[in-house]
């Protein structure tokens, strides 16, 4: 069964030079979408990934990461759009590079496509109504 899972990976400094994600693709046949990455040489690295593939492959891939010393958290964070508060002004669509937030050209109402969202959080401060929030 194909599934997808969003995870936050924290790499110890010692692993910063190791191509760990390559192994996930090559050995575990996983498709990955990097949502966010922060890797500083000689320091801890953080990677937010969406992994898709067979359920058993994802599980095996995550065990591989654990054995390498990578700590794993499930990504429970989500963008929440308060539709009661939204006035469909369009301010947020200016900063959404993924087109996850867009104006419907018929209704001119704001539409949020969660699938496209990479949680960059740019829209959160931009919304004049404070209608977009990060939920944990």
């Amino acid at each position: 069964m194909q599934v997808s899972k969003r995870v936050i990976l924290t790499f110890p400094a010692s692993l910063a030079g190791t191509p760990v994600t390559y192994r996930l693709v090559k050995d575990y046949n996983l498709v990955m979408n990097i949502l966010r990455a922060k890797v500083i040489p000689k320091d801890e690295g953080r990677l937010v990934l969406e992994l898709s593939g067979e359920k058993k492959d994802i599980e095996a891939g995550l065990i591989f990461l654990k054995e390498k010393g990578v700590s794993i958290e499930a990504l429970a964070k989500d963008i929440h759009l308060d539709e009661e508060s939204c006035v469909h002004c369009g301010f947020c669509t200016a900063v959404c590079f993924q087109d996850a937030l867009s104006m419907n050209p018929e209704t001119w109402k704001l539409e949020f496509n969660r699938e496209k969202c990479v949680l960059c959080e740019q829209c959160v401060d931009i919304c004049p109504m404070g209608a977009i929030q990060i939920k944990f």
Binding site: V87, H88, C89, G90, T93, M103, T107, W108
Partner: peptide, 8 residues
């Protein structure tokens, strides 16, 4: 992008 609401 608009900055006023056409829907409203």
């Amino acid at each position: 992008n608009p900055v006023s609401s056409y829907a409203m």
